[in-house]
Amino acid sequence: MDVFMKGLSKAKEGVVAAAEKTKQGVAEAAGKTKEGVLYVGSKTKEGVVHGVATVAEKTKEQVTNVGGAVVTGVTAVAQKTVEGAGSIAAATGFVKKDQLGKNEEGAPQEGILEDMPVDPDNEAYEMPSEEGYQDYEPEA
């Protein structure tokens, strides 16, 4: 019985440690998101679009440190934060509304985080759909 109880105690310690790591990862992701939003706020009209992409990228980098179902929630929060940063930029006159959601080359930025393969159960990952990809044929 002692062996059984000791095993359960060790398992509990492992769960607590994993929860603490997840909590730490979420806190880091939130900190990076805040950094990115402050970065966007300090940019001029020309830099705002690039700044919004930076927020998304920093958040995406930190999301990889967070495991399990938390990833889905962090990704949703990050996307809403990026959308909010863009709205703030438009409201303050840093950028025109028609410039939001495009990178410096004018290509749409939507789907940055949505296409990231995420499995809350950590069982399997699927690649994003290939609808947006084109076949590449090298020139002879």
Rank of each mutant, 00 (worst) to 15 (best):
N65Q: 05
V26I: 05
D135G: 05
T54I: 15
D119S: 05
G73K: 09
A69V: 13
F94V: 04
E20V: 04
D115N: 08
G14I: 12
V66G: 03
P128T: 13
A78K: 05
G84V: 11
K80Y: 07
K32G: 01
F94P: 03
E123A: 04
N122F: 04
G14V: 12
A27K: 12
A76G: 10
D121K: 10
S9A: 04
E105Q: 13
V48Q: 00
E123W: 09
M1L: 00
G73T: 09
T75Q: 12
A29Q: 04
M127Y: 11
Y136D: 01
T22C: 04
G84L: 13
V82N: 03
G31L: 05
E123T: 08
L38F: 11
N65G: 12
E114G: 12
E114H: 15
A69I: 11
T64I: 10
G51I: 03
P138D: 07
N103Y: 10
K10S: 04
S129W: 08
A11K: 01
T75H: 13
K6P: 00
G36D: 03
Y136H: 10
K10A: 07
G47F: 15
K32C: 03
E123C: 14
G47K: 11
G132Y: 13
E13H: 02
A78N: 01
V26A: 06
G41P: 01
A76K: 10
I88K: 02
G67H: 03
D2S: 12
G41K: 02
D119R: 00
E104R: 04
G25F: 15
T75K: 15
T72F: 15
D135E: 14
G86I: 12
K12R: 07
K32A: 05
Y39W: 09
K43G: 01
V16A: 06
A17K: 07
A29S: 04
V52A: 14
Q79G: 07
D115Y: 14
G36N: 08
P128S: 05
Q79W: 10
A76W: 12
G93L: 15
V55I: 07
V26Q: 00
T72M: 14
Q99G: 11
E139I: 12
G47Y: 03
E123N: 07
Y136N: 01
S87F: 04
A91L: 05
A89R: 07
T22E: 00
M127W: 06
A17E: 04
Q134K: 15
Q109C: 06
E35A: 14
A56P: 01
V82F: 14
G93D: 05
A30F: 14
D135A: 02
E137Y: 06
G51V: 15
E46G: 02
V77S: 01
N122K: 15
F4T: 01
G67L: 14
E61I: 10
G14M: 15
G106Q: 05
E137T: 06
T72L: 04
S129K: 05
V66N: 01
T72K: 12
Q79R: 13
G67Q: 07
P128Y: 05
E61N: 03
D2Q: 12
T44G: 06
V55M: 11
P120D: 04
A89C: 12
G73V: 14
A29H: 06
V37Q: 00
N122E: 04
K12P: 01
Q134M: 10
T59L: 06
Y133E: 05
K12E: 01
L8C: 03
V118E: 12
G25L: 15
T75Y: 12
G73A: 14
G93C: 02
A30L: 10
G93N: 08
Q79E: 02
G86K: 10
G84T: 12
E130I: 08
A17T: 13
G67F: 13
V118M: 13
K102P: 08
V40Y: 07
K97Y: 02
P120V: 04
K6I: 01
L113V: 15
E130W: 07
A29T: 11
P138I: 02
G73D: 02
E20Q: 05
A76V: 08
L38D: 01
V40T: 02
K6S: 06
K34N: 01
V118K: 08
A124V: 08
T81F: 06
V95W: 10
A17P: 00
F4R: 00
V49R: 08
M127T: 02
E114M: 02
K34M: 02
K10D: 03
E105P: 10
E110V: 11
V55D: 00
A140K: 10
N103W: 11
D119G: 15
E20R: 13
G86S: 15
E28C: 05
K34G: 03
T64Y: 14
S42R: 15
Y133P: 07
I112L: 05
Y136E: 02
D119F: 06
K80Q: 04
K43T: 04
V52M: 14
G73L: 09
E104A: 13
M1C: 00
A53M: 15
K58L: 03
K6V: 07
H50Y: 09
F94Y: 13
E20A: 06
K60Y: 07
E110D: 04
S87N: 06
G73H: 04
G36A: 15
E105R: 14
D135H: 06
V118C: 13
G68W: 14
E46L: 09
A30I: 14
T54N: 05
A30S: 10
V63C: 14
V16I: 05
T72P: 01
S129M: 09
K10H: 03
E130S: 08
A91S: 05
L113K: 14
P120I: 10
K58W: 14
V66P: 01
G14W: 08
Q99F: 11
T59Y: 15
G31M: 12
S9Q: 12
A56L: 07
P108G: 03
A76Q: 15
Q109V: 07
A29D: 00
E110R: 12
V70L: 13
V82C: 07
V37S: 03
T33A: 09
F4Q: 00
E110M: 08
G14R: 14
H50M: 12
E104D: 08
D2Y: 10
L38P: 00
G106D: 02
K102V: 08
E131A: 10
G68Y: 13
E13M: 12
H50L: 09
Y136P: 04
A140T: 13
K6M: 03
T75S: 09
A17C: 09
V26G: 01
K43Q: 15
A17M: 12
G68S: 04
Y125A: 05
A69P: 02
G106M: 10
D121R: 10
V26D: 00
N65R: 14
S9L: 02
E123F: 06
K21S: 11
G84P: 02
T64A: 05
T64M: 03
E114L: 13
T22L: 04
G47D: 12
V82W: 11
E110S: 14
K32V: 07
M127I: 08
M127D: 04
Q134G: 12
E114F: 14
K32D: 00
E114S: 15
D119L: 10
Y39C: 07
A30N: 01
A11R: 01
V55Y: 09
E57R: 12
T64E: 07
G36V: 02
V70N: 01
V3F: 03
K34T: 03
